[in-house]
């Protein structure tokens, strides 16, 4: 049986419907910042169609699992659903009037590579636009596409916040597009009144985006250049400042080293602790299954840099959670 994430969809729906009690991030400091926002005229949530979780990994007749109550719609947002059922629904798309599909991937394994390829083929044949943003807040389709219209009208996708700045102070931060979970409203609210001269990247954006909290995966993904969806989501929010602080978003992963070679950009210091903790968990999980492991094998089996892995191993040893015997790591 496969289980499917049910929480992210709840957050997206809560954000879209802008329920009064939906966001609780600011606690007692809530100023109902979301009350000035709402759905655009001409937009409508035609329906929420639910599939059960868990479901068998392999369905013999996926078509029998297509819910009978799918309403007519222009855009389908498929959040963490069984990929075989999704493919069946895409095949039936013309009967719903479907023009575009968004399949957000907050975690890389929400859909397999083969299902993604099949979905592309089905949609291409039917003339339907499809996107697999990973994570959802990296979703920025061309403005003149159906998907672009969807992002603009429903205000979800890669964050877009209009800042009004006077004397380097942000006097207003209006959200045009929010992360689908709604985090951007919270970030924008706390940007108002702050000075561009302060470290608002860390003190406002990272802080509030993180504590909202962002639920994108912390799994490193080769498709993201070895970054995690969580990191990409953070960068998308830092991009809010890019018209004002052009150095903020630097997407080039390679930098020139003092030795004249191109090397991976170093990880920002504030991420180190999080990465070390992630590496510690990975090491403990590995030892859970195999008792002991050589340093060489460990390096091959977990996707962390040698420096992060070494820090994790030192910390684990210091805490008495592992034992090292030469180059072999084991449980005490």
């Amino acid at each position: 049986l496969d289980t499917f994430d049910t929480l992210f969809a709840d957050r997206v729906i809560g954000n879209l419907l802008n329920r009064v009690d939906f966001c609780t991030a600011c606690g007692s400091e809530c100023i109902r910042c979301r009350k000035v926002y709402g759905m655009e005229p001409g937009t409508e949530l035609a329906g929420i169609v639910s599939l059960p979780s868990p479901m068998p990994h392999l369905l013999e007749r996926p078509v029998e699992h297509v819910p009978p109550d799918i309403p007519e719609h222009d855009v389908l947002l498929a959040i963490a659903v069984h990929e075989q059922v999704l493919l069946e629904i895409l095949k039936q798309a013309p009967s719903f009037g479907l023009r575009a599909v968004v399949v957000p991937l907050e975690t890389p394994d929400w859909i397999s590579e083969s299902a993604r390829a099949q979905a592309h083929i089905i949609c291409e044949d039917l003339g339907i636009e499809i996107a697999f943003p990973k994570p959802f807040c990296s979703f920025r389709p061309p403005a003149n596409s159906v998907l672009g219209e969807f992002r603009r009208l429903f205000h979800i996708g890669m964050p877009d916040v209009s800042l009004e700045v006077r004397d380097r102070t942000i006097t207003s931060a209006k959200v045009s597009v929010s992360a689908a979970c709604g985090a951007t409203y919270c970030v924008a609210r706390w940007l108002e009144g702050r000075s561009l001269s302060e470290n608002i990247e860390l003190e406002v954006i990272s802080r509030w985006w993180h504590s909202y909290p962002c639920t994108a995966s912390m799994e490193r993904d080769p498709e993201l250049g070895g970054e995690t969806p969580l990191h990409v989501a953070g960068q998308a929010h830092l991009g809010i400042l890019s018209p004002w602080k052009s150095h903020v978003v630097d997407e080039d992963p390679l930098v020139l080293s003092p030795l004249g070679t191109m090397v991976q950009r170093p990880i920002p210091p504030e991420e180190n602790r999080r990465n070390i903790e992630g590496a510690m968990r990975a090491v403990l999980a590995t030892l859970e299954t195999r008792g002991s492991i050589s340093l060489e094998d460990l390096r091959g089996s977990v996707a962390f840099s040698p420096a992060i892995l070494n820090m994790a191993l030192l910390t684990l040893k210091h805490q008495g959670l592992t034992r090292t015997d030469g180059m072999v790591i084991s449980r005490p």
């Binding site: 499917f4 994430d5 049910t6 969809a9 709840d10 997206v12 729906i13 879209l16 001409g42 937009t43 409508e44 949530l45 035609a46 329906g47 929420i48 169609v49 639910s50 599939l51 059960p52 979780s53 868990p54 799918i70 309403p71 007519e72 719609h73 222009d74 855009v75 389908l76 947002l77 498929a78 959040i79 963490a80 659903v81 069984h82 999704l86 629904i89 719903f96 219209e149 969807f150 009208l153 429903f154």
Partner: peptide, 11 residues
């Protein structure tokens, strides 16, 4: 523009 959301719910 009409949007439909497909999601999973714990059964």
């Amino acid at each position: 523009m009409k949007l439909a959301i497909l999601r999973s719910v714990r059964s």
